[in-house]
Design a binder for these strands. Structure first.
Lengths: 213, 213
DNA sequence: ATACTAGTTCAACGATTGTTGAAATTCAAA
DNA sequence: TTTGAATTTCAACAATCGTTGAACTAGTAT
């Protein structure tokens, strides 16, 4: 299933991903990317149409993987409930747990990607369009699952709840070091087990509060 | 109390704020800023030391105001509870309500500022340091108030809960249009009364879930 | 050996970047 | 009216930007 892609192309994507995540799209030059990829500048324009195309391919590469594993996780939860609906916690966990597993498989690269996503998500220029383009079909499936777990919930409450989830999630996985500073070291951005224990519970409680009764 | 500042300086700050919010620090040139401010390029370096200094002053200008009004809101809530502790909802509302009031006073400029904050907050390069620099003292006061409202809560749960709040809050006030797209128009990013009704309830429920017992 | 293609290198383009020094202007104080 | 400081304009600097065309190499198929 894994596509056969050129190794140089992958190196360029990795370098671009890391640098875009750190400094943002405009904060990085094609030359910096190609220097990190240890390849000539013009190779960027052999493998990609433009800087913007390179950025889009960075976004797309892991979005496909992420959507796939999240979908599997949701399917798994639903097949465990052939009759009744899964709980809110189970659905939220199916939404977040795959991120933790991907991080465990290759922390560095996936961290870069999640940092990039966090910045894209909160950018007024790109947030609305790009997140929609890459993640909407999957997100809509999750929202449908949540609707089933929360009968009598109206759409507005559901969408706003998901929006709050989205903000909390993207910031948390961006590992900005903010919580490390704020807590004086008591909490660590990179402490994934802390996140796993707390985020689904916190978010599920919010959903229930807003979407019940 | 309002400082006497040069009108040109304010115009530059407004222009920079709007453009930084839209395209990010590196996505905007000093020339673009000064063009929007309708002033000569070199005036930027008369009123500010550098592009980076201009950025810092953009951040600082409204941070001072924001910290002030939030502190007043927290004081007001606490003085309404001379004996017992305020509820979690009241504290969260004191944290979010001032943003709504500032938006009501000058929607355009404060929206730009909140968009900027959202991007800074989720940037791995700046998020940790800048948010700490500009908002830590106030945030720590809110966390102390929350601790009083949530006895037996340990620090880790408290800090992680605040972190989730921070992500949800900054994304929501960035008005990226994401929820408009996702909901097919059922929800609007700019619908402040929807936010007012839902965010404190959602967040407070999360705090209680994590920080109770 | 020849031809062809995919991959790579080198050098350069016009445009734009942040920044600066000096000259010109404005305007209140002396 | 003259002085002097605050503000603004103009022109330019070296550096870097995204992008491109032409030449070169490597490897495969004829």
């Amino acid at each position: 299933m894994a596509k056969v892609t050129h190794p140089t192309r992958e190196r360029i994507l990795d370098a671009a991903e890391a640098l875009f995540a750190q400094k943002g799209y405009e904060g990085v030059s094609v030359r910096q990317i190609m220097s990190r990829a240890e390849a000539d500048v013009s190779l960027a324009y052999y493998h990609f149409k433009s800087k913007r195309d390179l950025f889009d391919q960075v976004m797309l590469r892991r979005a496909e993987i992420l959507n796939e594993v999240r979908l599997e996780a949701l399917d798994a939860v639903e097949s465990r409930h052939p009759d009744d609906a899964p709980t809110v916690e189970e659905i939220i966990a199916a939404f977040t747990q795959p991120l933790l597993e991907l991080l465990a498989s290759d922390h560095e690269k996936w961290t870069h990607y999640f940092q990039l996503i966090a910045q894209v998500n909160s950018s007024p220029e790109w947030g609305g369009e790009l997140m929609t383009r890459y993640f909407d079909p999957l997100v809509k499936r999750f929202i449908e699952a949540l609707r089933a777990a929360l009968p009598d919930c109206d759409d507005e409450d559901l969408y706003w709840s998901y929006h709050f989830l989205s903000g909390a999630l993207t910031l948390t996985f961006a590992e900005t070091g903010r919580i490390d500073n704020l807590s004086g070291g008591a909490c660590k951005s990179s402490d994934m087990s802390s996140i796993k224990e707390r985020m689904p519970a916190f978010i599920a409680a919010g959903f229930r509060q807003l979407c019940t009764k």
